[in-house]
């Protein structure tokens, strides 16, 4: 579903990604691991062109999403980001009600019917496994939620515009273990319908939830394989050294 061909990226004169090639299967969870500064977050953000916002970024190669290059002229970036949604490391609910947070995206895409919006809000919150916790306070400000709830709200907000792919950039690094396990369970349940790509520093999390794992180092993708294979019998010594804690 997502095929990356010879992708390179520069921030000014510094090259951050070197010739990345990978095919990401749909309806599965792909984990991106590697030490800080290895390019995994840069790579993740490239997949829905979030890096376009950074001045001085230059990209070569292609990312095919459903067969089309996302960098081709004429690609509607807003539509691309509707298809490929994102959840960030720090939950970032808008300073408005829970309801309006979820309805925000559908409204910008032209949906105004109250009945339709009610339906989307409930479906999205249920999809993100937070409906039961917030259904009685939909009009309350989203900032009153706990960190874990805010993160699930942000995932619900991404689901509201019916994406195909959800990118998650260290979505649990600011959460306690209970909230972390809720997000992990959520990710596993979401892969029935969505393709999930997750950057994580938590190796055990990658083992627990992902189907495939890619190891990045110094802007290169060193190894990409089934998660079980990466963590049981990595092919590259650098992968072995990183996952066994010899560096990083």
């Amino acid at each position: 579903m997502i095929t990356v061909n010879d992708l390179c990226l520069w921030y000014g004169s510094a090259q951050a990604l070197h010739h990345i090639n990978m095919a990401i299967p749909e309806k599965s969870i792909t984990a991106l691991i590697g030490p800080s500064g290895c390019g995994k977050s840069t790579f993740l953000k490239t997949l829905n062109r979030m890096n376009d916002l950074i001045p001085g970024v230059k990209i070569s190669g292609e990312v095919l999403y459903n067969g089309e290059n996302i960098f081709a002229p004429g690609v509607d970036v807003n539509m691309l980001r509707k298809e490929i949604g994102m959840a960030f490391q720090k939950p970032n609910p808008f300073p408005m009600s829970i309801y309006d947070n979820i309805a925000y995206g559908p409204r910008t895409h032209g949906i105004t019917s109250r009945i339709q919006l009610d339906d989307i809000v409930e479906r999205s919150l249920r999809g993100a496994a937070i409906w039961d916790e917030v259904k009685d306070r939909l009009k309350k400000n989203a900032h009153g939620l706990s960190g874990g709830q805010q993160q699930r709200l942000c995932i619900a907000r991404a689901l509201a515009v019916e994406p195909d792919v959800i990118l998650m950039d260290e979505p649990t690094s600011a959460l306690d273990p209970i909230s972390t396990s809720k997000i992990e369970e959520l990710a596993i349940s979401l892969k029935e319908k969505y393709t999930i790509i997750i950057v994580t520093h938590n190796m055990q999390q990658a083992v627990r939830i992902s189907d495939k794992t890619a190891f990045f180092l110094l802007g290169e993708m060193i190894e990409y394989d089934d998660t079980e294979k990466i963590f049981a019998m990595p092919r590259d010594k650098r992968t072995e050294d990183y996952i066994t804690g010899r560096f990083g």
């Binding site: 190796m203 055990q204 083992v207 963590f231 049981a232 996952i243 066994t244």
Partner: peptide, 9 residues
Amino acid sequence: QQPVAKDLR
């Protein structure tokens, strides 16, 4: 240690 790879083996 939650070992992986060679350590786990």
